[in-house]
Nucleic acid binder design. Structure first.
Length: 276
DNA sequence: CTGTTAACCTGAGTGC
DNA sequence: TGCACTCAGGTTAACA
């Protein structure tokens, strides 16, 4: 469920743990996408959090031991900042409890993930050396991600533009909602072969991907079903969706009707009139 | 190499 | 109420 803007919203929400010391970690269910390391609590207890960053859809908590705690929310993961001892509900799999800071209440990060596609990992070395990070493409909000880059990579590729944009080796962070919305804003049909994108299509796609992600971050993410920020708050970007999840409804730019198709096994939506 | 599909899981919604 | 079926903000492994 969470794409880049949702993960970024959570990253900002959990910033108060930076500077805090980890008291302990409680793992109630370690069967996530990858098993939660058995010795996780032993390796992080007593360490101080030095940073809260994001790479792609991964949350990264830097520790003063040099290790990095890597958290991914998969499809259904949520991460809440709560007081320790907060009422447990089904699928609350991992707690990271922090010491009380002077004058402040103790804190806890709680991972809740019904589908268990998320993950909690610990990595001691350079991030780029991690198998999950080694092949990741550029951050969409970085200067490295440009029309020139996208055009160059897309040559001779027959895959649909949407699949191409959602390929994390091309660019990270563009999930199903935002890839769909950026294609609409750029006027590109999701089925168009990537190799058939013009240089100016690529320029526009880069611009619109950035625009959509930045707006969504500003709106605190998109809440269609169950996304919540780290304090339980809803996102608001769903109010600005032009096509996603709007099959059969009127296009907000013309009098056409939004169509739904399946691409790479994922629902895709477009306006046949606005997108060519 | 590129591209497509199945698989990992649970829960919510729909139609009969 | 129950059952069968579809679908869901992600990602990788296994194929052709």
């Amino acid at each position: 469920m969470p794409e880049l803007p949702e993960v970024e919203t959570i990253r900002r929400g959990i910033a108060p743990v930076v500077g805090r010391r980890i008291a302990r970690v409680v793992v109630r269910e370690n069967r996530l996408r990858w098993p939660v390391p058995r010795d996780l609590s032993r390796r992080v207890a007593g360490r101080r959090v030095t940073s809260a960053e994001r790479r792609a859809k991964y949350l990264l908590l830097g520790l003063d031991s040099g290790d990095r705690l890597i958290i991914h929310l998969g499809m259904s993961g949520r991460l809440f900042l709560l007081p320790p001892g907060h009422t447990l509900v089904k699928h609350d799999h991992v707690d990271i409890e922090f010491d009380r800071a002077d004058g402040d209440a103790a804190l806890m990060l709680r991972l809740h993930d019904p589908r268990r596609f998320g993950s909690v990992l610990l990595w001691p070395a350079k991030l780029d050396a991690h198998p999950l990070f080694a092949a990741l493409g550029p951050e969409p909000l970085s200067a490295e991600f440009s029309g020139e880059y996208l055009f160059g990579l897309s040559r001779r590729r027959s895959a649909p533009a949407k699949n191409f944009l959602m390929d994390a080796r091309v660019v990270v962070g563009a999930g199903n909602i935002y890839a769909t919305e950026a294609l609409f804003r750029a006027g590109v049909r999701p089925t168009r072969a990537a190799g058939r994108l013009s240089r100016s299509d690529c320029d526009r796609l880069v611009e619109k991907i950035r625009e959509v992600l930045n707006e969504a971050i500003e709106q605190g993410g998109t809440t269609l079903r169950d996304f919540r920020g780290s304090g339980g708050e809803l996102g608001n970007f769903q109010l600005r969706l032009f096509v996603y999840d709007r099959e059969g409804q009127a296009c907000r730019r013309c009098d056409g009707r939004i169509r739904r198709i399946v691409l790479g096994g994922r629902s895709s939506y477009y306006c046949p009139n606005c997108q060519k």
